[in-house]
Simulated scan of single mutants.
Amino acid sequence: MTETTPTLGTDTDTTQAAGWLRVVPMLAHRWPTWLGLAFAAINLADTGDGTEFSFLLLLAASGYLLVAVLDRPRVTWPVLYALVAAVVVLRLFDFDPWPVLAVVAVLVVAVGLVRGQLRRPGLYALQSPAALGFIALGLAALYVPADIGRYLVAAGLLAHAVWDGIHWRANKIVARSFAEWCGVLDLVVGLAILMLVH
C-alpha cells in the first residue's frame, strides 16, 4: 500500500482562490461607490476655490425633483444624463447653467405640487423644501466671498450626502444605485473642499 503525500500549498491556494472569488462579486456589487470615487477624483483634479462645485448641488437637487415628479425610480440615471448634457450644451453656448436649471427646478416643483407627487407624505413631501434649500445654498455660495462660499458648498454637499443616505436606506424616489453614487461623490468632494482648499 503506497501513501500519497499531499502537495504543499494546494489547500491554501484553493482557499485563497475561493476567497477572491467571493470578493470579486462583492466589489462589483459596489459599482456605484467606485463610480462615485472616480467622479470625485476627476472633479477634484482641477480644484479652484471650492465654489465651482456648487453646480453639484443644483444637479443633485434637480435630479431628485425630476425623478420624484416622474415617480419612476428607474429613470434616475437617464435624468442625470439629460441634466449633465443640458449643462454641457449651455456651457458650449456660453450660457450660465445656474439660472436655467434653477428655473427648471422651480417649474418642476410647481408641476409636482399641482399633480400631487410632491404632496404625498414622507420623502415625497420633503423633496421641494430640500431641493430649494440645496439650490439656495449653492447660489448663496456664488455671491459671498470665496472663503465663505467654499464652506457653504462643503456644508451643502455633506448635507446632501446625508440626504442620499436617507434615500438609499428607504430605497425610494431615486434608484438605490444613484443614491449610493451621489452620496459617495458628495461626501468625498465635500470633505476634500474642507481639507484641500485653503
Rank of each mutant, 00 (worst) to 15 (best):
V89E: 03
V144C: 11
A125F: 11
V162I: 15
A110Y: 08
G50T: 03
L59R: 04
F39H: 02
F93P: 04
H29V: 07
A18F: 07
I166W: 14
T14Y: 11
S177T: 14
V103N: 01
Q117F: 05
W98T: 12
F178A: 13
D49H: 13
R30T: 05
T47L: 14
P6N: 01
H198E: 02
P6S: 07
P121M: 00
C182I: 02
R120W: 02
I193L: 12
A17Y: 07
L8H: 06
L83R: 08
A125W: 05
G19Q: 08
L196I: 06
W168I: 02
A146R: 12
D164F: 07
W31R: 08
Q127H: 02
I166T: 09
L56M: 12
L66H: 00
A131I: 04
G48H: 10
A154L: 11
L152M: 15
V67G: 11
L126N: 02
S177N: 13
A175K: 03
I42M: 11
V174I: 15
E52G: 15
L132C: 06
M195P: 00
V67M: 10
F39M: 14
L123T: 02
S177R: 14
W31V: 04
V114W: 13
P6M: 00
V144W: 12
Q127Y: 02
R115S: 14
V174N: 05
A140K: 03
L80A: 12
K172Y: 03
L142P: 01
A86R: 03
L83G: 09
I166E: 00
G19M: 09
R150P: 11
L107T: 05
L37M: 10
A146G: 05
F39T: 06
V24C: 04
T7Q: 12
I166G: 00
Y143D: 04
V75D: 08
A175V: 02
D164V: 08
V88Y: 12
A130M: 15
A131V: 05
E52Y: 06
L37D: 00
A28L: 15
H160A: 08
G149W: 08
A38P: 07
G149N: 09
L107W: 01
L44S: 06
M26G: 14
W31I: 03
L44P: 06
A110K: 01
W181I: 00
L118C: 06
V89R: 01
M195V: 15
F55Y: 11
P32M: 05
W98I: 11
L132H: 03
L27P: 05
M195R: 15
T12E: 10
W168R: 11
F93N: 03
A60E: 01
V67Y: 09
P25K: 13
A61F: 12
A61V: 09
T12M: 13
G183M: 06
V79H: 09
L56Q: 09
P97T: 01
V153N: 06
G190L: 09
R176F: 07
G190Y: 01
R176I: 10
M26N: 07
V75T: 15
F55E: 13
A161N: 04
M195T: 11
L137F: 09
T12D: 04
T14D: 05
A102V: 13
E180Y: 00
